Computed example of a mutant assay.
Amino acid sequence: MVDGPDVVSRALREAPPDQLAEAADRAIRSALGAVRTDVFVADYRISGLWPVLDPDLPAAGFLACHTVAQRCFSSQQPVHDISDEGPCRLYLPLTAWGERLGVLLIELPSAPGPAVTGRATDIAGALAVAMRAADRVTDRYRRARRRERLSMAAEMQWDLLPGRSVSHRAFHLAGQLEPAYTVAGDHFDWSLDGDRLTLTVLNGEGSGLAASMLTAVTVNAMRNARRSGGGLVEQAELASDTVFYQHRGHRYVATLLLEVDTGTGRVRVVDAGSPHLLRLRGAVVEPVKVEQQMPLGMFAETRYELQEFQLEPGERVFVVSDGVWAAEPPGQEPYGQRAMARSLRATRLQPPTEAVGTVMRELHAYHADSDLRDDAVVVCLDWHGPRERNGG
């Protein structure tokens, strides 16, 4: 066998962006002696994994692959599927900078040893980074992800996202939008720059395309200030002024802006009217008390003040929009009154990428699995504490 990762990385660099799966397949067969490969991508609701190379995989074969692939995706660890008959299947997570994209399947003639598994893991990492980059210039992987047509508003919202998760030596962060295929105004954004993590969560006002356009203007105004070197106050004030002079106070956006110092765990906050910030310490869920200020765009020349709180290693922070907190199905009390705290506590042993899905599933169950009446955002931040860059 030749050096797997180098051969595959070169093949991926030379391949057209829509042909990464095919290029990886040819290179993996050559480098590792594989008899078959496939790429499974997670759908928008992260409810399943779907094949890219073999979309017409027979139902029985798909279900057999899917069960093990889902275990690999959830655990983020390689999984061997060894049977007495036929080749060994090796499932590897496709993850780039903490963003879970899917799973790579490699079928080998015999059970791989640690060296082959290690090379295959490196190959999966290279493929994940390539797919993440290619996503901007081809629709192929996005088409594989969607199980139904997105509304125009949802198309805009998903394109505006920075991703669905990111990992760092000091933290692990994940978010999820619902209803995935029709979401309009609620949104989250983040950026990691040196020792600063900036996180914003928006409780979009209105519905449909108008809500999505309002959110897009707000997010891009905050990004413009941030990318010009402005802190949270400048981001909030530019976004507020931009929205106000567009809508003269008739429309506004409740937004929470956070800036985490990844070296100390100190958090700066601007609470512009919502969403809701909660801390999970052990089995205790409690609100993080910060002073609520005016939503962005409600009044002209609104000025904002910073507040601060401290994160301690091992803590988990959730941010939820009103679509989660105030969800009130017929005959039920608001979800945030009691039921939400139970679902947050149920995530204690899950990573944030799984935790946001658990909260959303519990929210759907609270609605008796009927359609959500409002957009919903859940963001989960696990604070590990500052660590040395070498992982110590």
Rank of each mutant, 00 (worst) to 15 (best):
I46A: 12
W50L: 11
A27C: 11
Y335P: 01
W50T: 08
G331P: 00
W158Q: 10
S167E: 14
V319R: 01
M294S: 14
A211E: 01
V285G: 02
A254G: 04
W383I: 03
S47Y: 02
V285E: 07
S167T: 15
C88D: 12
D135Y: 12
Q70T: 14
V260K: 02
T138I: 11
Q310N: 10
T264M: 10
E333W: 03
D186W: 02
A211I: 11
F299K: 12
V285L: 14
A180H: 09
N203T: 10
A272G: 10
V285M: 11
L199D: 04
R143I: 04
Q246C: 09
I46S: 10
T358R: 13
R145W: 09
P352Q: 03
V324G: 00
T138M: 09
A23W: 08
M294E: 14
R100D: 06
Q246I: 06
R361E: 13
D241W: 02
V137F: 13
M1C: 11
Q307A: 14
L161P: 05
Q307N: 09
F244C: 03
L256W: 01
L57H: 05
A216D: 06
I123Q: 01
L127A: 07
E14N: 07
M1E: 10
Q350F: 05
G33S: 11
L381W: 02
R303L: 11
V217H: 02
V270H: 01
V217S: 01
E362S: 13
A283V: 12
I28F: 09
D56A: 15
G336P: 01
V183T: 13
C72Y: 02
S370D: 09
L90C: 12
A153K: 02
Q350R: 12
T262L: 10
V267Y: 04
E328K: 12
W158Y: 13
V285H: 08
D159K: 15
S343H: 02
Q292T: 14
R29Q: 15
S110Q: 14
Y304M: 09
D374R: 14
Y245I: 03
V8C: 05
A365D: 11
D6T: 14
E178Q: 15
E237P: 04
M152R: 11
A21P: 00
G86A: 07
P112R: 03
Y304V: 05
A134I: 12
D84C: 04
D186V: 05
H168Y: 12
G86M: 08
D6N: 11
P114K: 10
R136P: 00
Q337N: 06
E362Q: 12
G175T: 11
L258C: 06
G61Y: 11
S167A: 15
S274Y: 04
Q350Y: 06
V379S: 04
G231I: 05
T347K: 01
R146S: 14
R147C: 04
G263F: 09
R119E: 15
A27P: 01
L232P: 01
E315N: 07
S74D: 13
A60C: 04
V39R: 00
P179K: 05
G4D: 07
P93F: 01
R71I: 08
C380M: 08
D186L: 08
S74P: 00
P329A: 05
G204N: 06
A221G: 06
D139T: 14
R387T: 09
A368C: 06
L363K: 01
A365Q: 12
